[in-house]
Design a protein around this nucleic acid. Sequence first.
DNA 1: ACAACCGAGGATCGTGTTTC
DNA 2: GAAACACGATCCTCGGTTGT
Length: 444
Amino acid sequence: MAQKATGRPRPTTSRLEIGEHSIDRVEPKEHDDGTWWLTWTIRLTDGRTRRPRTKGRTKTEARRRAKDKAKELLAASRSDIWKVADDLVSYMEKVSKPAIETAKLATNSRDRYLLVYKLIVGGCLREDHKHSRSLKGHTIGTGTRFRALERCLVEIAELHGSETAHQARSVLGKYVLDQLIRDELIDASPIAGKRLDLAGSKGDTPTRGGVALSADEWNAVIDYLLALDPAEGIEPPKRGMYTLEDRIAVAANAIDLTLLQTMTGLRIGEATNVDPSMVTFDGDEMIFDLPPEITKTKKGRFVHVTDPAIVARFKPRWEIARAKGGPLIPSPAKPGVVWDQRQRNEAVKTLYLKMAEELDIPALETERSHVWRATLNTLTLGAGVPEAIRTAHLGHTAQVNRRSYTDTRDGAVLARKLSGLRTSKSTPKSTQSESSPVSPDEPS
DNA sequence: ACAACCGAGGATCGTGTTTC
DNA sequence: GAAACACGATCCTCGGTTGT
């Protein structure tokens, strides 16, 4: 090998370790203009070498600048290479979280996954419990052992429910463990294919839902609502731009919305998005033709209402909405637009709490509008309505062809069964405008 | 596995009234 | 006439459930 012109022994050329540089090995060279150039090598964390050249007015300055540059290069490549002893949560922040953020997911799913991601890394903000089994504090080595993962997931199941735990497992699998495999830090997912008990303590006692009212309670609610004066107990606002009428309109909205739901089991989001064009009146019957875009499942369906009192109640609403535009049960203050979820839920809550007390139905303390789905399903089950009809009516089967006559007849069957169950105390109000029963959109 | 919903509630906004 | 007050509207976040 050729010796340098200086005559000094050539410095070692031993292989640089990861993160090591040759700044102190090599000798700066004086350039024509009097500056000192240092050409050095560094092995980055991913194993590749870089060969930068640094300049300075003196040898020392060139070296100092080179070392700054070396630090910079190492910091930039730091995330590429991880060791088993590295902090697992740091790895997840650097690799897993961005992977979720850039994955091809619907916004809903991404948000959900980022939420459970936080649970996994011990970022739960709840103050009434602690995640002592989160992956926080674990190294990649310890945190990827079966027991550590299992404990983390079981704890999430205990504290946040089984479905959240399942989602956490998905996130762990695809965005943590799979990434670790790709970075050659583990060979395989320790929890893949393993059975984990993620039922959680609250598994069979959901905080809300799964409760059905009895037929008596159901009837009592309907009679109560039909008789209820929306103005009852409403105080006028002390100040501000809103009027007593606005407040009454809110209460009236809640009453009618609930009435509709007691009869149809419509989801609240579906019920408040119903447009008059989706409703036709056929004699004593009111038929909702729910298009896919307003249902949760994005599948349309027909829902019939035959109770005369309810139909009579909705006829004026339908006429107003059809004339002025806007949903059947619109925003109370702005009839042209959909009722805001925040306001709507507040109004519904107020009404349900009132009913819980006045009708002595404790379930309504906690249950909200979803209770009617369970109630209708249970009651009609008891009345012998086949499951296929019930599920189609409530809109949670995939196979229903919403335009078929079958579906229509199915809906009517259920509605007739319902009216058979109904023991009305209030006499149906006459529906004067029934004289023109022809639907406006379907002149057939 | 992924997607979408329901319900609760905090923070802030816009617009109006009352008070001083 | 400005500050204080009132209050639904709006937006956002959280967290559990429902659905394909």
